[in-house]
Amino acid sequence: MAMDTFLQQIINGLVLGSIYALVALGYTMVYGIMGLINFAHGEVVMIGALVALTVINLLAGSGLPGIVIALIGLIAAAPVCMATGFAIERIAYRPLRRAPRLAPLITAIGVSIVLQNLAMLIWGRRYHSFPPILPSTGYEIFGATISGLQIAIVVIAALMMAGLSLLVQRTRLGRAMRATAENPQIAQLMGVDINRIISLTFVIGSALAAVAGLMVSANYSIAHYYMGFILGLKAFTAAVLGGIGNLAGAMLGGILLGLIEALGAGYIGDLTGGFLGSHYQDVFAFFVLILVLVFRPSGLVGEKVAERA
């Protein structure tokens, strides 16, 4: 393939990867603090996307500038997602904190099913399309195109990740979060209200999920009740790839997975002599996941967690 196609796939991969990274942060924060995979996180992204899209569709004819409408959509979606995240933790995880590990995993699957079908009852089975309110001008770079929206996604994702890093590394809340992750009992003895910290972790992760949801639906111009599952799975893969429980790892893993998928889908036809086509795109994430877990379960930058796994 030519150089410009290569560059185009890199750009697509970066955009996709930024979204994965935002969602992966939600998984990794919860895992870091509670050692638990929040299976329902993908559904939170889906709810964010659908709420934002509903509001945006209502306002699409109002004559407001597109960016303002998108912002209002986000402002509507974020509290809904945060409330959902809060409720998930309260209902499905907190009562089971001392239960065998299988129990919270199964309630998480239950929550996931409930959210998905609740969304189906509210929004129906159909695909909801994103109205063309955002400017679609493209910029040429060495023969590849990047749209304003794509630039915005990458920049906003980077800003949010930087903000989260600051929050975790520099604030009192962040220190409490790190302490809880290190050892909840000791953190409690030091006066950290760990229940509050865990709730806040879910809420912050869900806020990021709302942003990611808006980005996905804007990027693909589409949202539906089933979108959360596969997105969640890929974001989880990203988190594992980077090293679960590690914030920088989630970001790195997200970007990397986005690139692997975009390049893989672009080149798999050539590599296998046309035997496998780009519809195998979803397989890459799973292969990456299996390979990482088998050969380097601690991820690229994570600490050793083999015994916890």
């Binding site: 995979i37 590990r101 299988l102 994430a285 799973f286 996941l289 877990l293 088998v294």
Partner: peptide, 20 residues
């Protein structure tokens, strides 16, 4: 390949296998 994995990690890998 999943002999070393346990708990939720195993769950995710087997899930991925089923999807593949």
């Amino acid at each position: 390949p999943t002999l070393r994995l346990r708990g939720d990690y195993l769950a995710i890998v087997t899930l991925g296998f089923g999807e593949i």
